[in-house]
Design a protein around this nucleic acid. Structure first.
Lengths: 143, 143
DNA sequence: GAAATAAATTTGCATATTACAACTATTTTA
DNA sequence: TAAAATAGTTGTAATATGCAAATTTATTTC
């Protein structure tokens, strides 16, 4: 039972890794910037739950690769904002499409009479998972 | 829909990371050795789909930390076998328990009348996911 | 208004991961 | 028996990660 769930996760991870010769960390950063459009480095590190220094370097790699740009926030010059270049947007869309294709294929291969059930179950798992994460985060804050 | 699924995966990953101050790669290696009991480095790198050199170093870190031992295969002296130390087994069990606790909590929080449905859905997802992976791996072999 | 404090980012430092290539020792093949 | 194949280790280079320190900018305190 538990092993099955772990396998499902592993398979989805494997598909995500099939991305444009980029590392996973760069993927995560690129996708987050692509979805949020305009984000400060501070926000990005909070979203990805990584240290600022880590994100600073990862973003630097994206910038060097021509996938992202850094610019100064006009309202507060301490802040660096990050946005994707045209090339970066192309990579972002490629990644999103790869994942969309995987999940679409996944759901199309589910027997038709079971689809609603599977979708409902995913909603349930998400809701329950969120509750567990709330408890975990409360414990972290207490420590 | 797709975002929901991604969130579920993210949450399970986050729980797996709550491991004994070890890195994720070390976790993976430790768990695989713990489950397989006695495995060669070659087999381990195939299972984890990583390069031999990578695993050699990761295992070396485990050995240095006192969690694993290397020994020569009596039947073929090219082979190095890996097994966990007592300390390693303790860490292995700790990791397995952390994950078991997470999933148990997860399923207990699912409404009782929905549990069979969710379990069935997970079986379906696994089966379908495996089929997709088969196709992907056939494509890789052709390239 | 000046000084102290806080906040954002970058860089130094150390450790770890990853894969390709080269090397060594052992086993298998011809 | 020599050549080829195999398993594992090490060199190399690039990247990831977090803690600490440094720099710049903004906010707060007096």
């Amino acid at each position: 039972m538990i092993r099955l769930f772990e396998r499902i996760i592993g398979m989805a991870d494997e598909n995500q890794m099939t991305c444009c010769r980029m590392t996973l960390a760069q993927c995560h950063a690129l996708v987050e910037v692509g979805r949020t459009k305009d984000i400060s480095l501070n926000q990005l590190s909070q979203m990805l739950e990584l240290d600022n220094s880590t994100l600073s370097r990862t973003v630097n790699n994206l910038v060097v690769s021509g996938l992202a740009e850094r610019y100064e926030d006009p309202n507060d010059r301490r802040y660096i904002k990050i946005k994707l270049t045209e090339q970066g947007m192309m990579n972002f869309h490629a990644i999103e499409e790869t994942m969309n294709t995987y999940y679409e294929t996944l759901f199309q291969m589910i027997p038709e009479e079971k689809r609603d059930q599977v979708i409902d179950s995913i909603h349930i798992l998400n809701e329950v998972g969120s509750k567990i994460m709330c408890c975990v985060k409360e414990k972290k804050n207490e420590e």
